[in-house]
Amino acid sequence: MELTLSINQAKSIEWELNLQQATLFSFILNAAYWADKQDGYWYLSKGKIIEELPILSDKRDTIYRLGTQLIRKGLIDRKVINSGDHYRVTRKGFEWNKAEAGKKSEAPRKNIRGSEKNPR
């Protein structure tokens, strides 16, 4: 099981990712370091994702749908090789870990929802 997850909140808000999408994207991005690679893609079965991210879902179709949503947002590509799902991160997706020096992010503050104590 993946013990620690790192989510870039500023990019998640900018790219309009919900928590499930951001979690899966972060996991796929980090899988580049350990997953088997073939033709520029790395192999990640839906079962492996469920095993490593039980907090995300225990259903293969949910993992597939979340992956499809990330593809539509232009963050990853998926390719079936030898009957297995292989992923790669797109150029846009690699911006996840880039910090813009000297630029203060306003995105998180603008999109914070109001609460009962602090309505908007």
Rank of each mutant, 00 (worst) to 15 (best):
L75A: 03
R88G: 06
V80G: 00
K79I: 03
L53W: 12
L5N: 15
E52L: 15
D58M: 04
L70M: 09
F25V: 15
K46L: 08
I71P: 05
R109M: 08
A22D: 11
T62C: 07
A10H: 13
A10D: 11
A32P: 02
G93I: 13
K48V: 09
A35K: 11
L17M: 03
I50F: 08
F27G: 07
Y41I: 02
I55E: 10
I7D: 05
S105W: 07
R88C: 11
E106P: 01
W96K: 05
E116L: 14
M1D: 11
T4L: 05
N82L: 02
K48Q: 13
L24I: 13
L29N: 01
A101E: 15
S115M: 04
F25S: 10
L3A: 12
R109A: 11
L3K: 15
S115A: 03
N8I: 11
T23W: 06
A107Y: 04
E52K: 15
F94N: 06
A10G: 09
S6M: 12
Y43A: 02
D61R: 10
E51M: 00
W42C: 09
K98S: 06
A10N: 12
F94H: 10
E100S: 05
L3E: 14
W15P: 04
A99H: 06
D85K: 11
G74T: 08
L53G: 13
A35I: 02
K110L: 13
S12G: 04
L3N: 14
D85A: 11
R120S: 11
K11S: 06
I71T: 06
Q38C: 05
N118A: 12
N18D: 15
E100D: 10
L75G: 04
T90R: 03
N8A: 07
V80I: 11
G47R: 08
E95V: 03
I76F: 04
S83K: 12
Q21F: 04
D77S: 02
V80F: 06
A22I: 12
K37S: 14
W42Q: 04
I76E: 03
E16F: 07
I81V: 08
L17I: 01
R109I: 05
E14I: 08
R60M: 02
